[in-house]
Nucleic acid binder design. Structure first.
Lengths: 224, 224
DNA sequence: GACTTGATGTCGGTC
DNA sequence: GACCGACGTCAAGTC
């Protein structure tokens, strides 16, 4: 990893065209040749960057400045012109052991599949990731009356998720072996507009409590 | 801006729970106190981070190690435990003059509104950002026969954009003063599945040539 | 390689 | 502050 602090201007031409006037910034070069240009604000988003795989060409100008040209396969180009270099250091970091996460949508799905009765008395699981032509339905289940239910799970329920579930329902209900299929939108938090749209389409909304679900799961583990 | 290279482990508890085992990494602290922890790959996304506004507390352990605790208002917490510090430097960057962009959707919209005939002989503009209860329609126009057309503009046309336009059309067609309203999906690039869905719903698709539109505009400017 | 979906998305504008 | 849509979204998984 190489850290350069320099007064620089930046030009990007690719998916859009962008320009940064001359100013002091951090230029970060990683082991995979990716480059990012940071100002002293915004948690982590750089002002400009080039994702790997890409190539970095360094040139020196007559007056001691530097010009870096970063190019990727699709022809996107990032040009960094450095007027004055204030710091330049390189560091060997090695490969990172990687991040361990807990609490993402996949976990919600696992927990809910294991506790279908959270959704309603007597509900059972048909299967998780039920495959369809337009992608897998998060959970396909059965309610107490034997009716089929398609469940879409989100951490945060927004309009997109309702649209997604609607497409699944439309498709599933064309299958005479399955129809009628009810829809259920389950999320830790459901935005008002998403709830309105879902309700308008006859889709039931349920908010999930991750900690409670995990607690139930822990209780189960303690029992067996 | 402060740059620290250190062997560290990281724990995050907030919107999810995450852990990073001890390894050498870059810890970046910006002027707004935001912190990000980078490995030596992935263009700009850190392994872990805390967005501003947040507070950073530094402590030293008996064996010369450091523990940083970063907390934000909503109670999210990031704990960085440094076993060995390999580099530590601070740099004054000042406020960045900011990025100048060109070629985004807004610009496409301006160009197209100014050249409605690109969409069809005799087409005219009613207005840009036509307001509706569920958000503004990019362009509302009139075709050669006087029929109303709602235009949704995207840089890249995907399914989401078709769904969005469909919602607008549904709403607009409930208004007897406007109905019938045709739909037109215009983008620099239209994904096959989006095109299929649009066509299936009777929405016409048009791919836009940004350079050509800008060229036409330049010609116009030269004339007047 | 195209397509889909999730994300600690982030960011900016509006109400 | 909530909500909503755009993003050079990115990144991972599937087909």
């Amino acid at each position: 990893m190489r850290l350069v602090i320099a007064r620089c201007s930046v030009d990007y031409a690719g998916r859009l065209t962008a320009h940064l006037p001359m100013a002091p910034r951090l230029v970060l070069v990683k082991a995979d040749n990716s480059v990012s240009v940071h100002a002293d604000d915004r948690a982590y988003k750089p002002l400009n960057w080039m994702s790997p795989p890409c190539t970095l060409k360094e040139e020196e100008t007559e007056d001691g400045g530097r010009v870096w040209t970063v190019v990727n396969k699709t022809g996107e180009k990032l040009i960094i012109t450095m007027e004055e270099v204030l710091h330049d250091s390189s560091h060997e970091l090695g490969v990172d052991p990687g991040l361990i996460k807990d609490g993402v949508e996949a976990h919600l799905q696992e927990l809910l599949a294991d506790r279908m009765e959270t959704l309603g008395e007597g509900w059972t699981l048909i299967r998780r990731e039920y495959p369809t032509a337009i992608g897998p339905v998060d959970i396909l289940g059965r309610d107490a009356d034997g009716g089929t239910v398609a469940v879409e799970i989100k951490r945060r329920g927004e309009i997109d998720g309702v649209e997604q579930l609607t497409r699944y329902l439309e498709l599933l209900n064309r299958d005479p072996h399955l129809a009628p299929v009810q829809g259920l939108f389950a999320a830790q938090e459901i935005k008002p507009q998403a709830r309105t749209l879902a309700t308008d389409r006859g889709i039931r909304c349920v908010t999930l409590d991750y900690d409670a679900l995990r607690g139930i799961e822990d209780d189960k583990l303690r029992l067996f």
